[in-house]
Simulated assay, not measured.
Amino acid sequence: MGSVFLTERVVGAYNKKVALKLLQRGMSTPSNIARFKRERNILASLNHPNIVKTS
């Protein structure tokens, strides 16, 4: 359904390696976009000692 790339988020003096996930061409249906948004929210809410949180 998509490709995942390792990239860097740069906001001012703040740099962080992040994963960037892109849908394949033709896969951007409303249901797939909703699925990706749900996945984003799940990943953002993960809480585990091996996942670093930033302030």
Rank of each mutant, 00 (worst) to 15 (best):
Y14R: 15
Y14A: 11
S31W: 06
K37G: 02
M27G: 00
S3M: 05
M27I: 03
N32K: 06
T54Y: 13
Q24F: 08
I33G: 04
V4R: 01
Y14N: 11
H48K: 05
N50G: 05
A13D: 15
E8C: 08
A34V: 03
R40Q: 12
P30Q: 05
F5C: 01
S45W: 07
E8V: 08
F5N: 02
P30I: 02
M1D: 12
R38G: 01
R38P: 00
S45V: 02
A34T: 07
S28E: 15
G12T: 06
G26E: 06
L46D: 01
L6C: 03
L23A: 10
N41E: 14
N32T: 07
I42Y: 10
V11N: 12
Y14S: 08
T7F: 00
N50Q: 07
L6I: 08
R38I: 09
N41W: 02
E8I: 04
T54Q: 08
F36Q: 06
S45F: 01
V4T: 14
F36M: 14
Y14W: 15
K53V: 10
L43E: 11
I33S: 06
S55G: 13
L22E: 06
A13I: 13
V52L: 15
M27N: 07
G26S: 03
E8A: 07
P49L: 08
L20G: 02
K37D: 12
S28G: 11
Y14L: 14
L23V: 05
R35K: 15
P49Q: 05
L6R: 02
S55H: 11
L46E: 10
N41S: 11
L6W: 01
R25I: 05
G2F: 09
S31I: 09
L43N: 08
S45R: 11
L6N: 02
F5V: 02
L43I: 07
H48P: 03
V52S: 14
T7L: 00
M1K: 08
V52P: 00
T54S: 13
A13G: 11
I51E: 07
R38Y: 06
R9Q: 10
A19G: 07
K21N: 03
L22P: 00
R38Q: 12
L46R: 07
Q24D: 11
N15D: 00
L20Y: 06
S55M: 09
V4M: 06
E8P: 00
L22Q: 10
L46G: 01
E39Y: 12
L46M: 14
M1E: 14
R38F: 06
N47Q: 13
L20P: 00
